[in-house]
Structure formats: C-alpha cells, structure tokens
Design a protein around this nucleic acid. Structure first.
Lengths: 248, 248
DNA sequence: CACCCCGTTTCCGTTCAATGGGACGTTTCC
DNA sequence: GGAAACGTCCCATTGAACGGAAACGGGGTG
C-alpha cells in the first residue's frame, strides 16, 4: 500500500540495516529473524536479500537461511583502507608475538572508539577482549589511549567535551590526565581494567606529523616480568610499521 | 527526466557497482572518476556516495575524493564467513611460515576460482601472486586444484563441462587428469606455472565428509630442497585446522 | 585581473522501481 | 489432523529515486 518506504528510510539505509543486522558471532540467520533484527517487513527483506544474493553479497541456503557472502568480503577487503596498514604491520606483529608469545593487536581510531584491525593470538596466551573488527571505548583500552593521546589538540578537545563516564569510574579531569600521561610517556598502559588478570600496553604508530594512524598493543598477564624490554620492543616495531607505510 | 533507473538496474545493482568500482590498489578516487568507472551518471553517483558516506560505508574527503569507509570494513569483517576459518588457520599458518620462511596462503573455492582469504609473506621470500581477497583460476593455482580435487563429483563435472582453456595450454582431458592426480596424491603442485621461478604446493582442509572447505598452500623457490618434509607438514597443519573448525 | 575550464554541488519536475499487505505452498510441531 | 510458523509470490499504489540543467568554486592561464 504505502509504496516507497513508509518509514522514511532510503534503500541505502535498508541495505545497511540488513548487513548490519548480522551479529558478530553468528554466521547464519533465518530470513524472518533477519527481517526482525533489521526492522524491515518480511516481504521487503525477502526481496532485498534475493537481490543482494544475486550479486553474491549475501548467500541463501535451503530453508530460507541467509549468511554474508564471499563476494562481499572480497570486494571490501581488496579495497579496504586498512589493507595497506595490515600488510605493513603484519611482519612486525609476528615478530612481537614470537618473542613474547602473547596476544598482539593493531587498532585504528574511529569516532570515539578503537577499532581493532588485526589480532594475533596464541594458544596458551591470556584472554583478549579485542576481536578483529571489534571496538573498544577509548578510555578502557590501551589501544584507544595510545591513539587519542597522539591526535590534534582540537580532536582531543572535542573528545573530552563529550566525554561521559560510562560507569562513573572516571571523571573528565581524570580522563584528561590519563591522556596527558600517555602522551608524555609515549605509550599507554592499563592494568587490570579490561580484564582483572591482564595488562594492556599499546604504543602509537605515528605519521610524519606525529599523529597516531594506528596503535600496536599487547595483552600480557599481570605477572609479566619483561616490562622494561616490552615497551622499547613495541616502539621499535611501531617505527618499523610507520616507515613501511611512508614508503608505499 | 527518466525517473527511476533508465538503464533497468536496481538500486542494489548500483550500490554494488559503486563499491566494486574501486580498484584493488587505489585507496582514493575522485567522484567523477568513480562515476565513470561505475558507469553511473555523475549526479546519481554523487547522491549515492553521500548516502553511503552518511553510514560510514564510504568516506568523503575535501575536493570530492571518495574512499571506502572503516565502517564497511568493520561490518563485513565481523560477520564474514571466512572469519572462523581465518581464526582457526592463523596459528598453523604462522607455524608453517616460521619453519619454511616462505609465503603461506589460505584459500576457499568460489565459483570456478580460488579466493585467497589470508596470506603471510615474509621479507626475502619469493614473489607471490596471491593477494589477500584476490582470485586465481582453478587450474593455474595449486590452491584451486587442491580445492576442486576434493569436491562433489557433480560439481567437478559441472566445472569440467564448462572448462575452456584460457590460453589453449590445457585441454579438458588434461584438466581432468590433473584433478584426478591431485585427488590421488592428496596435494596439488604446480611447478613454474604461476611464476616461472616458483613452485606452488597446496593441500586441502577437509571436513567430515572429506570435502575441501579450504586449501592451505605455500609458494617456494624452485630449488627448495625440503619437499619431502613439506607436504606432510602442510597436511598435518591442514588436519589441525580442520579439527579446530569442527570444534567450534 | 578577468577569463575560462573542469569538477562538484544543488535544484526540481517526471516517473517507474520499490513497497508491503495479502494469499498461497510447505514444513514443523503439538 | 489441525495449527502455527515460515518462505515465497503477486500486484496495485505512489513517493523516492532519477538525472538534465544550471549554479558554484577553485585553480590555472593569457
């Protein structure tokens, strides 16, 4: 009846809602469930899914099951802005991981969160909350701190202005102090914040203008003893990554 | 004038054309160039880009520059069908890479091509044509052969029926024989085909029904001497990956 | 400085592709 | 065997998408 888009959203909006409706851990969704999650009428969902599946962006299985398609992954990953970063960082991340035998992660800043681009984890290493393509708020991740501490003053100002303590744990002034301390030291550390038994340490990957384009971090157990050597190792690797980025 | 879609393609088609228009190596495109590549009128391109940028799927810079957005990468990579595979395979790939100090790659079958999901390369290792999110035809990649040699007979039949020699190098019967040989041996090898100086070797990652869900491969120089040990090492790793996939 | 050129952005009347309620076929569960 | 849930198809309605035209802006040239 209501012709084009009763609810005032465009086709683009709907498509985005559709692919965003997939939760991170689930690989397959029922059509009706997808419709509900995306907040779209079943019929509309059905039509859009069929169209998207025609391009391989989604794949449909028997019984109305839907899952993200390989072609979508391909299209996005071959042109992604993170690809060059990942390529440059990978060898260094592996080196770090070999030496420490613990989790290594690579993140970029997006909005007021750290977006994790890559993670190397090892059997036997401590738990790591950072998932690939996962996010963490700036102030409860060492990656986030390392990233924000090396940004424009203007951006930091905007961030602190809108800063609202999620659990009331941190006041705005404490947040500001934490950033300043991180910038002064040249690395970020969070002891037992993300996870009570782990210690997160991250350093910025700086560009020519000394702004962080990424962060390189590790998650180690609280009793890790090699802290003195750890930060220099990370910083060396971060400089290596920066150099490779500048070359390309 | 011509209202909705003069050329008979839907909005979905256009969006796909838009994100597919980005070449793999270029990160930023001019709006007009994007329009031309996508085969869309400039005005339409502009409107769609603005909408997509509103969701963060694309990002616009000053002067009408457009690049893929972080949010797109995030959405796709957190739900991608390859994520579980990648997570399961990564540790084994690193092991192989450490031991051989050469390129390691992971691929899946999509259509009549091998789609490379992950690649670990090392400074000093030989050239490797396989890019992450890149494709290679089945018969000129060891990964492709390993994948197709362990599929349903029906699928293999369809593949061989439509098989057309790209350069006339390979007849259909030769292609069939190559697949059979690969299946018999349990691994695929191509000597100097992809690149005159390199040797590609790949083994299938098999599921419970003995079908290949992925392939694990290496690219080594022609003079590599450890071939005897190489295939068993790959096969062991492939079994390890299969076990981890089955567990989750 | 005035001019031009080329790409981006906005405007707006036309129109057809997108829409979604309804109905039907199929499977699953009680 | 009946009912509930789900996927699929149909189709009249209509406003969102379309794109030509024109305005805007900025960078280079005579």
């Amino acid at each position: 009846m209501v012709a084009n888009s009763a609810s005032g959203d465009s086709v683009v909006d709907r498509i985005v809602r559709l692919i965003a409706a997939f939760p991170q851990d689930v690989h397959t969704l029922q059509l009706s469930e997808l419709a509900e999650r995306a907040g779209l009428p079943l019929t509309t969902t059905h039509r859009l899914v069929r169209q998207l599946a025609g391009h391989g962006l989604l794949e449909t299985g028997p019984g109305g099951t839907v899952r993200p398609g390989l072609r979508l992954w391909e299209l996005v990953n071959r042109t992604s802005p993170t690809l060059a970063l990942r390529q440059a960082a990978m060898p260094f991340m592996e080196d770090i991981q070999q030496v420490l035998n613990q989790n290594v992660n690579l993140a970029v800043l997006d909005g007021w969160e750290a977006l994790f681009v890559e993670r190397l984890s090892r059997r036997g290493s401590v738990a790591n909350r950072a998932q690939v393509a996962g996010r963490m708020p700036i102030h409860i991740s060492s990656a986030g701190l390392a990233l924000m501490a090396h940004q424009d003053k203007a951006l930091q100002g905007q961030y602190l202005d809108q800063f609202a303590d999620p659990d009331g744990k941190l006041t705005r002034d404490q947040a500001r102090a934490l950033l300043a301390e991180t910038a002064r030291q040249g690395f970020a550390q969070l002891k037992g914040i993300v996870d009570p038994d782990t210690w997160g340490i991250a350093v910025p990957v700086l560009n020519r203008r000394q702004h962080a384009v990424a962060s390189l971090g590790v998650v180690v157990p609280l009793q890790e003893m090699r802290l003195q050597a750890l930060v220099p190792a990370l910083q060396t690797a971060a400089r290596g990554i920066a150099r490779r980025l500048a070359d390309s």
